[in-house]
Amino acid sequence: MNGGFEEENICSEYQKNCAPEGWISTSLYADYYFDDAPNAYEGSHFVGIVLADSSRPSGRNFLRSRLLCGLRKGEKYKLDFSIRSLHNVFDSIGIYFSANDFLYQKEKLRNTQPQLFLRSAGLQPSKEWQKVSLVYTADGAENFIVLGDFKTKVHDLSGRRDLGKSYYFFIDSISLTPLNPREQLCAAADSVKEEEYNFSVRHSMLDRLMYVNTKNPPPVEPLPKTTLQRIDTLVIPDVLFATNSYALGEKAKTLLDAFVTRTKSYQVDSLVVEGHTDNQGSLSLNQTLSRNRAESVAAYLSPAFRSAVFTRGWASEKPVADNRLAEGRQKNRRVEIYVYVRE
C-alpha cells in the first residue's frame, strides 16, 4: 500500500504530515520521510532509513508495512523498488516477511534473518537511484513486510553524512506483485488499507506502544488470501451464424444457454467476447462483422451475468489456422468467450 509514499499520514502526536500512510519506521530518533521532488525517484516523496549515526552507532532501523492480502503458499511474487545510498552497505540490506508484527516481536530486530538480501543485485554506492527487482516464494503465513539494515555488526562508515549526524539509504516506488497473472487482490484489500491508514501513532507514542506490546504482543488476524482467477473459454463457430450475418441461430442460442447453466456455480468476475473473421473481403467489412457478432453474443449473455461483459472485434488479425485453406478459414471465422472465474 502507498508504494510511492505520496499519501501523507497526519500523526496523532504532533498533528503533522510526518510519515507516509501505511508505513512505520523504527527510526524514532531521526527524520525518515522526505518531501523533496528533485531528489525523489518519482513524485515528491520518499523514505530514508538510518544506517548509523554518531550518537547511536549500533542502532538498527527498519521500515514496516502490512500487506494488503495474504500471499499463497508456493506462489512467486516480484518485489520492485528503487534505492540509493552513498555508502557501501547493500550487502546488509534485506527484506523480511512475517506473520506477526515486526514492531512487537521479542527477538532483537538485528538478529532476525530476512528472506531476501540485496547482495545479488549488483548495486554500487551512488547518488543516483538504482532499480531493484527480487523474486520471493511465499510460505503462506505472511502478513507484514519489512525493509531494513540487518547487519549484525556495527557499520564502519566514513565520509560525508547524509543528514545531521546520520548515514542513510533511501527507498522509493515499492511494489509487490504476483508472477501468476491469474492472481488478483483480495476483496478485503480496501478495508485493510483503510485500517492501516487510520493508525496514526508515531514518534514517542509509538515508542511507548512498542514497549508495551513487545511484552505482550497483540494477536494478528491472518489476512485474506489473494484471489485466483481461472479462465474458461467457449468458441462459437461461424456455422452457428447466418452467412455474413451477426444474427444468432437457434443452435447458437442452445449452446449459449448450456454455457449459462454450466457457469451458474461460478464466481464470475467478467466476460470478454471477441469476434474474428478470415482474411477474405475488405478489412472494414470484416471489422464490422466481427464486432457485431461479438456484441450480439454479449447482448444474449448479459441478462444472465451481473458481472461486466466486454466486447472486441478483431476482424482477421488473430487467425488460429491457415487462411490459405478453406478448412483454416472456417476455423478462423468464430466468436470466442473468455470467462474470468474466481477460485
Rank of each mutant, 00 (worst) to 15 (best):
A299E: 02
E274T: 14
E274K: 12
S284M: 03
A299S: 04
R293A: 12
E295W: 04
Y340A: 09
Y338I: 04
R324T: 15
R291T: 13
V273Y: 02
A326W: 06
V273I: 15
N286S: 05
N323C: 11
A321G: 06
Q287P: 06
L285G: 12
L301W: 06
L271E: 06
G313D: 11
F310I: 12
E274C: 09
Q267D: 04
T288Y: 09
V273C: 07
F305H: 04
V309E: 05
K318F: 14
A298R: 07
L289Q: 15
H276Q: 03
D269Y: 12
Y266Q: 10
R293P: 13
K331R: 08
A321D: 08
D322K: 08
Y266F: 14
E327I: 09
Y300T: 06
S316N: 15
R293C: 14
E327C: 08
T311S: 13
L283D: 10
R293F: 13
S290N: 13
N292K: 15
S284R: 11
R329L: 00
S265C: 00
P319R: 06
E336G: 05
D269I: 10
R291A: 15
R312I: 03
A304F: 15
L325T: 13
S296Y: 08
N279M: 04
N286Q: 13
Q287V: 02
D269R: 15
V320S: 00
L285F: 15
R329K: 12
A308V: 15
V320L: 08
S265Q: 02
F310D: 06
E274A: 15
N332I: 01
S302P: 02
Q330C: 00
R291E: 03
V335M: 03
K264A: 02
S296C: 14
V273Q: 07
Y338S: 14
A299D: 00
A315R: 00
F310M: 12
V339L: 00
L285E: 08
A294W: 12
T277K: 04
G328I: 00
L289G: 03
V320Q: 03
N292W: 06
P319Y: 13
P303C: 07
V341P: 00
L283Y: 10
R312H: 05
G281L: 10
E336Y: 00
N286W: 13
E295T: 08
E327Y: 08
A326M: 09
G281S: 07
K318A: 11
L289I: 11
T277H: 03
Q330L: 06
R329T: 00
L285C: 03
S307D: 10
W314D: 07
S307A: 15
A315I: 06
S270P: 05
E274H: 01
R306K: 05
